[in-house]
Nucleic acid binder design. Structure first.
Lengths: 331, 331
DNA sequence: CTGAAAGCGCTAACAG
DNA sequence: CTGTTAGCGCTTTCAG
């Protein structure tokens, strides 16, 4: 059997309560006693049992993170932001992949509650009604990150996806492209809808009649970008600029154009979205929307710590700043 | 207060033990009773408390994963492999970033043991003596993944880093490059040393006198690849082929050469290592060593489940197969 | 097939 | 400053 708080107490000739106090840094312990206890802890190799502590105190110092796919370059950066701040505040993070599957999201959420996490950071595409209901009944605080869905009740951290998309498109419009093309991510994700809206706003305010063939549906993967580029390049009336809803897909688009003999940015300008590390790992380097991915994770987790501490938070819906960075895929 | 097993028992007119049996799928319950209990569980919205269960049963169905950096494209794929299999076997995963910092590794390891995880998957560069000692004293099983360090006692899952590097270099040698250059990752990581050895073996068996200026130390980042390429390109006697110890860095190397007016593969051939998704996200596409990253994670986790179940495992040191895939960065 | 009862290891009043 | 004493919610013998 492992050494318990009781063993330490006996060996040090104090009560369990005292041992508990020194372990938890409670100041109400005479320095001499503290030293003695610390000594026998060391000597016995005592390691506090966090499960027992969790049961007694009703706090596990563990948070849950529900993420679509940790192997995505975008989300893994987010996760790193969450974990860094979690560690800073002495929390551990249980991480689970949802693949944006509504049923899996529900299962994961409940499994995390069973594990008695003190809070949850949720990232996803769209939040189903059922999940939303469960969120509302949640016994622990939840923060929604990078999900572009205002729910009213649940705190969120994100950027203004619509406005950022508007600005990216506007940049292209200002470069004298009457209607830049748009390579869209799947409409399953609310952020993608926001991006589409922003694109449309920039295009229509220019009074253009919208060409539907310039709007191609894809799914944010590199390969779908490749395909989209080919599709666009084959158009009789091909566009001279394109706004792509994610960096990874934008790399695909750039390469797709290049594979079809077009030069970026001379023949066609390209703007991406996210500013992941990929943006500088391509030639030409990618102009893109800077979304502070790591920070969204970090801020979401920081917000969660406040909520878990029942601190007052003035603003439950945090919008982080974005900007456009011009590199070499635009003129 | 939340609804407990006791509430369910009272409401269903059975004992806690029976409720526990129903919840845990113990067959020794009369169907009628089971149904009744299930009914009141539903009705009361009872959710088992995993912390209490963990304390009583001494199993938390949670595993720990210590990983250098989840935002790295290589490790995030590994993590996904771990998590998928963990979920399949009903485990949750606590994920922590170590940045390959030995002290942090120690802290994380102990913190996970405090949390009473049932097992741990460790990924890192080099395992410090102190950490190794702690591993040996661990009350729960540990599996070391993708770390290239045989420790004897602790089970490992990896590929043969030396042999793979040998083959990659050999490919270049066979393309009539007397001595391909080598862009190395930091020697802090054991895998990198293995790669270096493999490189050297392929070069020396060819009886070449080894040019030290062809071996450049870098750190596996894109930018260090950029620098390495410049350094190599500036050599009076510049190499005509280069083996790079990671894909991300290989992209940097390719772009570095291109930025310096060299053509890949016409002027210089490039081979990478890992076959991350990046390998096809570059022009020319990258010839590279296929390391089954996801599988390493998955197999490591599967192995851990066996160990946690105290099943006999015949082979404690799993070497997964690798191969070289030729794309367009080689002739 | 079911129940009673003893913990699991720790925290948190409460008392002194 | 320190000790006593209840639990936290569940699993697990042991009986029956």
């Amino acid at each position: 059997m492992n050494v318990t708080i009781y063993d330490v107490a006996r060996e040090a000739n104090v009560s369990m309560a005292t041992v508990s106090r020194v372990v938890n840094g409670n100041p109400n312990v005479k320095p001499a006693t503290r030293k003695k206890v610390l000594g026998t802890i060391e000597q016995l190799g005592y390691r506090p049992n966090a499960v027992a502590r969790g049961l007694a105190s009703k706090r596990t110092t563990t948070v849950g993170a529900i993420i679509p796919d940790i192997s995505s370059i975008f989300f893994s950066e987010l996760a790193r932001g969450i974990e860094d701040i979690a560690t800073m505040y002495k929390y551990n993070m249980i991480l689970s992949n949802s693949d944006q599957n509504p049923e899996k999201e529900l299962t994961l959420f409940n499994s995390m509650l069973e594990k008695q996490v003190d809070g949850i950071v949720f990232m996803g595409g769209k939040i189903s009604d059922e999940l939303l209901q469960q969120f509302d009944k949640s016994p622990v605080p939840i923060v929604i990150a990078a999900t572009g869905q205002g729910t009213g009740e649940i705190p969120t951290v994100a950027i203004d996806y619509e406005q950022a998309a508007y600005e990216a498109t506007k940049l292209l419009v200002d470069h004298n492209h009457k209607q830049p093309a748009f390579v869209a991510g799947t409409a399953e994700a609310e952020t993608n809808n926001q991006k589409y809206k922003g694109y449309l706003r920039a295009v229509t305010e220019n009074n253009t009649e919208v060409k539907q063939e310039y709007i191609v549906k894809a799914n944010n993967t590199y390969n779908s970008g490749l395909d989209a580029a080919k599709q666009l390049a084959d158009l009789a009336d091909r566009p001279s600029a394109v706004f792509v809803s994610s960096d990874e897909m934008a790399l695909g688009v750039i390469h797709g154009f290049q594979d079809n003999g077009l030069r970026v940015p001379e023949d066609i300008e390209v703007v991406g979205y996210d500013n992941t590390r990929l943006a500088t790992m391509v030639r030409p380097t990618l102009s893109t929307v800077v979304q502070p991915t790591y920070d969204i994770g970090a801020v979401a987790m920081r917000l969660l710590t406040k909520l878990m501490n029942k601190e007052e938070v003035s603003d439950k819906n945090v919008i982080l700043p974005h900007r456009i960075i011009e590199r070499n895929s635009t003129k």
